[in-house]
């Protein structure tokens, strides 16, 4: 059996007496697309931040390809092959699309602390390739500050792929996008993930996206995992229906 890319063991986090995440354990295999769903306030964001290093866990461990990475800051996780996209896109507004991606490449290749060499053409080709894959090659020179929201999501994806990740953590990857665009972006993501054997963990509100692209679904409610399995099985789970899907009508 292969080592899971990501493994959570009994992750727990308490905010002011409330257990936002309560003993969550799961594993993610290479190339697998796993969706994390749950009602608002279920603890999805907290769990996500425990996994990406932004928040320190009260208890439990996170393993990346078998190594204990609990408590490592996000930038160190990136070095170990974790790429991220954010619920509200985070790109560098004053930099051009190409520069955004090139910077991610520079960081990956540890060329950031170079003080005198003009950065102009470093990794220009690689950046173009990555942007081509997400359909942004036509807008290389535009500043991110002036891009449309959907395009920013694509730039983020290209940046997340710059370190040849084995794991992508995507927080609400399609939030704020039009329905067709959502499907297209996730289809792109799925294709890349499959081609490069990248495991993907994503949270999502849009059930069409979840059931259309996830190989497996986890359901979080009040900090606990209440169901996990293939999309159909989860959809049929009565507890899930009661806590979550029921409310969605």
């Amino acid at each position: 059996m292969t080592t899971p890319v990501l493994q959570a063991e009994g992750l727990t986090k308490t905010w002011g007496g409330v257990r936002a995440v309560d003993g969550v354990s799961f594993a993610l295999a290479p190339g697998e697309m796993l969706a994390l769903i749950g009602p608002n306030g279920a603890g999805k964001s907290t769990l996500f931040n425990l996994l990406n290093g932004q928040v320190r866990a009260d208890a439990g461990r996170v393993r990346l390809a078998g190594d204990d990475v609990t408590g490592l800051p996000p930038r160190k996780l990136w070095r170990r092959g974790v790429g991220r996209t954010f619920q509200i896109t985070a790109t560098f507004a004053s930099l051009s699309v190409a520069e955004n991606v090139r910077l991610a490449l520079l960081s990956h290749h540890r060329r950031v602390f170079s003080f005198l060499r003009p950065s102009g053409d470093l990794f220009a080709e690689e950046a173009k390739e990555l942007l081509d894959r997400v359909g942004m090659a036509a807008q290389l020179q535009k500043a991110c500050g002036v891009l449309a929201y959907g395009d920013l999501k694509r730039v983020e994806l290209a940046m997340a792929l710059a370190n040849r990740p084995r794991l992508l953590l995507m927080d609400e990857p399609t939030a704020g996008m039009a329905p067709e665009a959502r499907q297209a972006l996730m289809a792109q993501t799925a294709a890349i993930a499959q081609a490069e054997k990248i495991a993907v963990l994503f949270t999502e509100h849009d059930m069409d996206v979840v059931f259309g692209h996830a190989a497996r679904v986890m359901v979080l409610d009040r900090g606990r995992l209440i169901a996990e399995g293939a999309p159909e099985a989860v959809r049929a789970d009565p507890r899930v229906r009661e806590s979550y899907l029921g409310k969605q009508g």
């Binding site: 930038r75 160190k76 954010f86 560098f92 507004a93 910077l103």
Partner: peptide, 15 residues
Amino acid sequence: RAQRDSPLRAEAIGL
């Protein structure tokens, strides 16, 4: 400039 624009993203790409 990147870390000025978005500390969050900078950290997420290893800066």
